[in-house]
Nucleic acid binder design. Structure first.
Lengths: 131, 131
DNA sequence: CTATCTGCAAACGTTTTGCATCTGT
DNA sequence: ACAGATGCAAAACGTTTGCAGATAG
């Protein structure tokens, strides 16, 4: 199992492997606390320091994205592929949108800024909440 | 001056009028503390409770938007007109983008969600930070 | 061997709360 | 008159930090 993460070039401690395993393929966009609680089952001494430390390392390697959807609480998205999000404004469910929208800005902006990318948040009401 | 805010249907206390006046036309996307500090000059007894209380009331009336750019600190945007943002990832300056991008989602999503809108965050490096 | 990570607890900055008093309408 | 706002201080919340001991590479 560790081999698949070897190219991250970070120290693969048991705690980190547990975090990576929890995040792998996870589509729930968990918060730091969600991750902490999940890994706590396996490592009763797990601390938030380790969760944040690991998330910071993974963010720097580009294999985890921070999602700023929830004011006051960060949520995390595994995987390095860029994508957008659709959020139900009622239940806060987040759905990934894997589509590349080409958005062009006006010249007066591109002159003053070097644009690196964009992130789109669609909001709506899911069928469950729409009833 | 109060007349222009009468249709908000909230109690127009002097403190609230000072906050509204500070926000009116403000393009700096201030944080709660920015607002607090600005209004403090006029009302030395101003408290954060009042700032947050007022922002909450204005948010509910749709005349202030909360911007979730900065994890760990909310920023606020006066006005109800929809627009997007361009953020310098270094100095966190936020520039408004008043352009309507028509973004279409795939049918499988529009079937399960009733889409209400979208919000785009462009990120880049401003000329000041790019040097 | 040693650079880095872990775990704890304390510290931090932001936001929320409880409550007595006050005030717009 | 009274529903709702203010102001204060304390508490809550998510996140960060310092540091001693442990461990992956």
């Amino acid at each position: 199992m560790p081999e698949r993460y070897r190219d991250l070039k970070i120290k693969l401690t048991p705690q980190r492997l547990a975090i990576l395993s929890y995040l792998n393929g996870n589509k729930t966009h968990p918060s730091a606390e969600d991750i902490y609680r999940a890994v706590l089952k396996e490592f009763p001494t797990m601390s938030f320091a380790t969760v944040y430390n690991t998330l910071e390392a993974l963010k720097n390697k580009g294999s985890v994205q921070e999602i700023k959807i929830d004011a006051g609480k960060r949520r995390y998205d595994p995987g390095s592929t860029k994508h957008h999000h659709l959020i139900c404004i009622k239940c806060k469910t987040i759905v990934d949108i894997n589509k590349d929208f080409r958005l062009n800005l006006t010249d007066d902006l591109t002159k003053d800024f070097s644009i690196l990318g964009n992130s789109i948040e669609f909001y709506g009401v899911c069928s469950k909440c729409g009833k």
